[in-house]
């Protein structure tokens, strides 16, 4: 089994406190029963299983967590959450870790990078059109990943079923959508 260095733990108390505060979860309550990992449909593809993520939050292992693939592979299905005997919400902890990784500009790779590109592209569509424009989001994602023809077969099926729209649909009050993105950015900059 891999060894985790616990040197310098006192300095990382701050990280533990922040994760607990931002997620609203008293991570210290986790007693490592492993039920979250047992029920997680994605645990097999994660580099750190969910119960270890909870333990690492307790220990303040910031770099390991923010650089993990796990936080991006978590699909927020919340199976862990409904089964936790301590009433914790590990899915929410994963969510907070994703937000932190992004805020800190963590360099992503592998699976995590792809999820991040997808999320960014999705939000870009919402920002521009007020709604997610499926075709634009998919094409944009493929171009950014350097795989322009990925899912071309799926796209063709959708086209034949009349499920592809070539133009985005927008709400009338687009300025209200722009306002949301601007205000959030402003408030979050103030909090920093």
């Amino acid at each position: 089994m891999e060894t985790v260095s616990l040197n310098g733990l006192m300095e990382s108390r701050d990280f533990t406190d922040r994760v607990c505060r931002e997620s609203g979860q008293p991570a210290g309550n986790c007693y490592q029963c492993g039920k979250c990992t047992a029920g997680c449909p994605l645990a097999g593809t994660m580099d750190i299983p969910p119960n270890r993520v909870m333990r690492m939050v307790q220990l303040g292992l910031k770099d390991r967590l923010l650089n993990s693939q796990t936080i991006w592979i978590c699909a927020f299905c919340s199976t862990c959450t409904v089964r936790c005997p301590r009433g914790l919400d590990p899915a929410r902890v994963m969510e907070s870790l994703r937000i932190m990784a992004r805020r800190e500009g963590t360099a992503l790779k592998g699976r995590g990078k792809k999820v991040h590109i997808f999320n960014d592209n999705f939000l870009d569509s919402v920002k521009r059109f007020g709604r997610m424009f499926e075709l634009g989001t998919m094409v944009g994602y493929n171009l950014k990943c350097g795989t322009p023809f990925k899912d071309g077969d799926t796209g063709l099926i959708m086209f034949l079923q009349g499920k592809l729209k070539f133009l985005p649909e927008k709400p009338r009050e687009m300025d209200e959508i722009s306002r949301i993105f601007e205000e959030v950015q402003r408030m979050e900059a103030e909090q920093k």
Binding site: E22, E95, N119, D120, L123
Partner: peptide, 9 residues
């Protein structure tokens, strides 16, 4: 995409 990016958003 939004809740993975910003709680407020």
């Amino acid at each position: 995409a939004a809740h993975s990016t910003s709680r407020l958003l």
